[in-house]
Design a protein around this nucleic acid. Sequence first.
DNA 1: GTCTATAGTACGATAGAC
DNA 2: GTCTATCGTACTATAGAC
Lengths: 222, 222
Amino acid sequence: MGRSTKADRSSTPAKQTRDPEATKAQILDAAEEEFARFGLNGARTEAIAAKTGVTKAMIYYYFGSKENLYEAVLKSYPDNFLDVVKRLNVEDLSPEDALTAMVRAGIAHEISHPHQGKVLLHEAMQNGGKYFKLTGGWEEAIGHGMEILNRGVAEGYFRPLDSFLTMIHIMGVITFYFNAENNLKNIDTEREWLSPSAIEQLTESAIAFILAGVKATSEKQS
Amino acid sequence: MGRSTKADRSSTPAKQTRDPEATKAQILDAAEEEFARFGLNGARTEAIAAKTGVTKAMIYYYFGSKENLYEAVLKSYPDNFLDVVKRLNVEDLSPEDALTAMVRAGIAHEISHPHQGKVLLHEAMQNGGKYFKLTGGWEEAIGHGMEILNRGVAEGYFRPLDSFLTMIHIMGVITFYFNAENNLKNIDTEREWLSPSAIEQLTESAIAFILAGVKATSEKQS
DNA sequence: GTCTATAGTACGATAGAC
DNA sequence: GTCTATCGTACTATAGAC
C-alpha cells in the first residue's frame, strides 16, 4: 500500500508528503470509521482528523463540510457489495447454490468492509434514511436476492414466501452478529468473535438456517 | 406550541405541576428516545429537555449527568422483555409452539418498546458494549431461547444446530426490520411499515422462516 | 496542499433565585 | 422542584501564513 510519494527515506510515514489522492482517501477511510461508530450527528471532525494524520482543515479543504464528507462516504459504497453479488453469476447456479453463495458473500463482505453496515444502520436510526439513496447499490442487490428467491419458489425448490420480507430476514441474519457483537461479547466472553474459525462457524450456521428457512418441505415438485 | 406558563387551566397538561415521579419518568422517556436515535455520545441533553417540557437543569437535578441518565435508561430495561418471555410458560408447550410464541413476543416487544433495541444497538456500536451489562435481562432471555432450541433438538423436533448462534440469527430476523426501517422505506415506498397489517405480515413471514430454519427435515424421530 | 490560529457557536454542567 | 442565567469547554468551520 506504499501510497507515499516523494522522498520518505525514514521509516515514519507521517506528516503527509503532499499527495492529494492519498490524503483524500485517508480522510474518507477515517471518516467511515468515525461515522460507523457515531453516525453523522455524533461524529467529530476532530476525531477524524486525529485518526488521519492530517489536520482538520484538510477535511474542509477537500470536502467542504462534515455533511459533505458523510455523503462522500455513502457515495463510495455502490461499487462494493453489488459488484460482489453480480460477480457470483447466480444465473448459472441452482437457487440453493445461488442463495448459499449470496449468504457467504454477505458475511465475507461484513468482514472485508466492517464499517459499511454500521454506517447505514446509523443512517436509518438517526437520519431517518434521508441520505440512504446515495448508496445506489443496495436496492439492486436486494432485487438480485429477491430474484433468486422467486426463481426458487417458481421452480419448486423453495416454499411459497414473500421474497422482500425474506430478504430482510436474511439481511438480519447476516448483519446482526456484527452489529451487536460488542454486546454479545458480554454474554459469551470466551468466543473470539472475528477469528476465522468463529466466522466459519457463523457462516455454516447461517447458511444452514437460511437455506432451511426457505426450502420446500417436499422435494422439487415441478 | 403552547408552552405558555402561568394559569393555563385549560386542557394542556404542560409545565410540570411539581410531581417529582412524573418529571423523572418524563425525562427517562425523552432520554430513551434521544439515546435510541443518537446513542450516548450523540444525544443532546438540551434535546432531551426540549422533548420533556422541563428544563435541562432538571436532568442534572435528578440524574447528575448525561452518562448517569444513560445508565438509568439501560437499568430501566430488565423488567421488559425477560418478563414477557417468562410469562410465556414455554415449558408447557411443544418446542415449535414455544419458539413461535417467542418470535411473536419478540416482534410485539419491538412494537411496544420501539426504542429499546436501538439504544442497545448504539451501545454495541459506539460504546463497545461497555454499559450493556446494566440491562440484566437479556442474558437470561437468550438463555431461555437456547433452552427451547436445545430441547427441540434433543426431542428430535429440530435439526442439530448451534443454539447460541441460532438465537443470534433469530434476534437478527426479529430486529432488522425495525432497525433498518428508515432505509428500507426508500426501497419499498408504498409499504406502511408499522401498520398492524404490515406487522402481521412480518410476523407470519418471520415465524415461517425461523421455524423452517430450525426444524428437522424428517419428522420427529424419537 | 498543509499548517496554525481563531471566530462563532452549541453543548454539558452549575449557581442561585423563587 | 423548577426556572433563568451563565461558566467553561469542545466543536464546526474559516482565515491567513507557508
